[in-house]
Amino acid sequence: MPINYYIFLSLALFCIGIVGVLTRRNAIIIFMCIELMLNAVNLLLVAFSKMHHNVALLAGDAATTAGTDGQLFVFFIMVVAAAEVSVGLAIIVMMYRNIHSVDVNFLNRLKH
């Protein structure tokens, strides 16, 4: 597949994620949109990794491992995302315990 397709697909997903972050008020949904952004990045990385692999193959290196690093990066992103989610949800739950809401507009209370 042409790499451009993948670029645009993941950019579209990324921007949808950003729109979600900007438009929603529920902290959990915002967080989910961030996860969506991360996934868009993952997709892009995998596509690039396959592209670089292809380039190396076309260059005549049959035993090439070019592009492996991209996929490993995705792996690390997933790892980090998992850790982040555990912490993030803990924080959201903690806040919910206190104010019984996950509305981010409550955050404006800090500004006096």
Binding site: V21, F31, M37, V41, I92, L110
Partner: peptide
């Protein structure tokens, strides 16, 4: 409550910026 809210705010924005950063890294990798 202030601490909670600060934490949540920091977290959401931090995660968001991490997303941007990763997109940047991905493009550079490309």
């Amino acid at each position: 409550l202030k601490s909670n809210e600060a934490s949540l705010k920091y977290f959401l924005l931090g995660a968001f910026s991490t997303g941007l950063m990763l997109m940047g890294i991905a493009l550079i990798y490309g």
